Simulated scan of single mutants.
Amino acid sequence: MQLNKFTDYGLRILMTVAHDREMPYTIAELAKQLHVSENHLVKIVHFMAKQNWLITTRGKGGGIRFNPQVMQAHLGDVVRILQGEVDIVECHNPPCVLRVQCGLKGILNQAVNTFYLQLNQYKIADVLQLNPQTSPNKNAIPLLNLSS
């Protein structure tokens, strides 16, 4: 399974803005830092603010902040929400002649659910590894190396 760009950029945004600092982040700053267009980021940040993962404020001194409550969110749940409903295989458009006798869609859907269950063993805090001594899973593997 491959993460869509919306999910990829959303995770990059979370990982970036989670690093607390005095001034909030701006779209322009994130776009430059993450090498992503501002237009993409506006949509993603707006979506993530609606999920209450980010805190956004307008005007002078405004910007984007990380909502610390998201630290305890399960990674699989966050990825599933960012990904949206995705059919891993399309059986109806165009109609597949094998669908009457095919068990592939069910098997692939089960694999996708297992993928999310595996990710749910980790919380956002594990991915960020801001303070490994207090992370609930000190043996967290670097699941998402999105810098490439």
Rank of each mutant, 00 (worst) to 15 (best):
L130F: 06
W53D: 00
D77Q: 10
Y9R: 11
L108A: 07
V17C: 04
G59A: 03
F47N: 08
F6G: 06
A140H: 09
H92S: 12
K105N: 07
G84I: 06
D126Q: 02
N113M: 11
I124Q: 01
N139K: 13
M71F: 14
N137L: 12
A73D: 14
N67V: 05
V97Y: 10
S37H: 10
L108N: 00
A31L: 03
A18P: 01
P94G: 02
F66H: 06
G61T: 06
L3Y: 11
A49D: 09
Q118D: 15
L117Q: 15
D87L: 13
S135K: 08
N120K: 06
I27V: 10
G76Y: 02
E29C: 01
I55W: 04
L54C: 09
E29H: 10
P95T: 07
R65Y: 06
S148G: 14
I81H: 12
H92D: 12
S147T: 15
I107D: 13
K5Q: 15
N52S: 13
G76Q: 03
Q2S: 14
N109T: 08
L117E: 15
C91S: 05
N52F: 10
D126I: 00
F115Q: 09
N93P: 07
I141D: 10
I27R: 03
V100I: 13
E90L: 07
A73M: 12
D20Y: 11
L30N: 00
L41E: 01
V78D: 01
Q118L: 15
V89Y: 03
L11I: 10
L54I: 08
Q72I: 13
E22S: 11
G84Y: 03
V86P: 00
K43S: 13
G10M: 08
N52D: 15
N113C: 09
G106P: 01
N52G: 07
T26S: 13
V45K: 03
Q72D: 14
Y116A: 04
V112L: 14
Q51V: 03
D77C: 05
K105P: 03
Q133A: 11
C96W: 08
N131L: 07
P95L: 03
L3A: 10
E22K: 08
A140G: 03
D87H: 12
Q2A: 14
K60R: 15
E85G: 10
N52M: 11
R58I: 06
G84H: 07
L117K: 14
N145F: 09
D20E: 14
G103Y: 03
Q101T: 15
L144P: 03
I88C: 11
L41T: 04
S135Y: 02
A28P: 09
V97C: 10
D77V: 02
N93G: 06
E22I: 08
D77I: 06
C91H: 02
R58P: 05
L11Y: 02
S147V: 13
